[in-house]
Design a protein around this nucleic acid. Sequence first.
DNA 1: GGGAATCTTGACGGATCCTTAACGCCGGTG
DNA 2: CACCGGCGTTAAGGATCCGTCAAGATTCCC
Lengths: 224, 224
Amino acid sequence: MTGVLVVDDDQHLLKALRITLQAHGYTVETAADGEAALIAASRNPPGLVVLDLGLPDMDGAAVLRELRRWSSAPVLVLSARHGSSDKVDALDAGADDYITKPFGLEELLARLRALLRRAPETAEPSTVDTAEFSVDLGRRMVTRNGEPVRLTPTEWSILELLVRNPGKLITQQQILATVWGPAYEKEANYLRVYMAQLRRKLEADTGNPRHLLTEAGVGYRFRP
Amino acid sequence: MTGVLVVDDDQHLLKALRITLQAHGYTVETAADGEAALIAASRNPPGLVVLDLGLPDMDGAAVLRELRRWSSAPVLVLSARHGSSDKVDALDAGADDYITKPFGLEELLARLRALLRRAPETAEPSTVDTAEFSVDLGRRMVTRNGEPVRLTPTEWSILELLVRNPGKLITQQQILATVWGPAYEKEANYLRVYMAQLRRKLEADTGNPRHLLTEAGVGYRFRP
DNA sequence: GGGAATCTTGACGGATCCTTAACGCCGGTG
DNA sequence: CACCGGCGTTAAGGATCCGTCAAGATTCCC
């Protein structure tokens, strides 16, 4: 889900926003002052920022400008000040929207939706490369030597699970439960068939796979 | 310069906005009712729309929805109504910002700047080409070997969705929900019929499509 | 109201995909 | 050295899905 960073020094408001946003499916991080906000944003880049202008340590506009130096995430500014010049300053400093306290939560949510509609840029790196093939998770596409590779739905599900956990060992039960459902955890046969197909389509030397590795008796592992 | 379409039935406000916007370097067109607005927008696609919700002939929200069917230009809504539900409705109908009358011109200008700052991203390549046909998203037109191709509304909706996401796999549910509505997610029949029609109109070899590809059991994909 | 364009519905052959079973290989084990 | 379990490989059968066509139903526009 989309990550939202909420910056405000009012603990009550912070808590209310966190609960509301999480209830609507957003992942929420919070910060109580400007410095914490910038650190949190750099550590875990948010898809959207809700920023209060009245912060204890530094001017909200300064936070905004600093953030804009490297992030293009939409910023919605909260403020208690109704003055026209405040709004103009914030918007020209890089904010995407400006809403004055007190505000209705419904309106806030609607404005967030409108902002996110414009910026589907939160997309992950979304593509994982190896020496031989490349997996585009966003487009659901696999290419090998520049040529697209056709995968069946089941093949893709398995590959996606492995690729989303690079280097990590995934047990057969995990794969079976994820792709076929928890009732199929005993059907290790399926896996043998499909891993063979995946290797035939993706590996240069099927006998010596370089990226889709077997851990005998346990499961499989994707090596980038 | 950027073209702004201002829609309002208040002649005085219209005049004031025209003068102000022109003084700030925008090219301005005006419309006094919803129908005129839609005609003006289709004749000369604006880079931005300022839309009053209280129009004499049709609901402002209706204008917005109609506009959104083919234009992705940012829309700033003006309204005399302060109600929270009005704002939510307008924003969810596709508006990018909502400002209540009376408002300060400075604030309006700042919000327009903020919207246009985001717009270049959405500035459409507006036309997508393949070896065999070309799709003009802005004009809502398809040509093949220089000849225009007639598409029905449904055909166009599907093609547009696919073409706006080049290379990306779009699931059947996504297409059905987007084109027919979320209640039709089970009607995979429709898709088969319409994909066949699209291929007949756009592909050289219907049996071996080169751009409108099928992913059995999942969905379809447009390859540029 | 009438005619044309568009949308819906159903049916069929063919393509694709999933399941299942069989066989060979390899390493470990008694 | 024979046995055994786990893995890779392959291919055939059946189930599912897709492309295609055509005939009704509906909508739209004159």
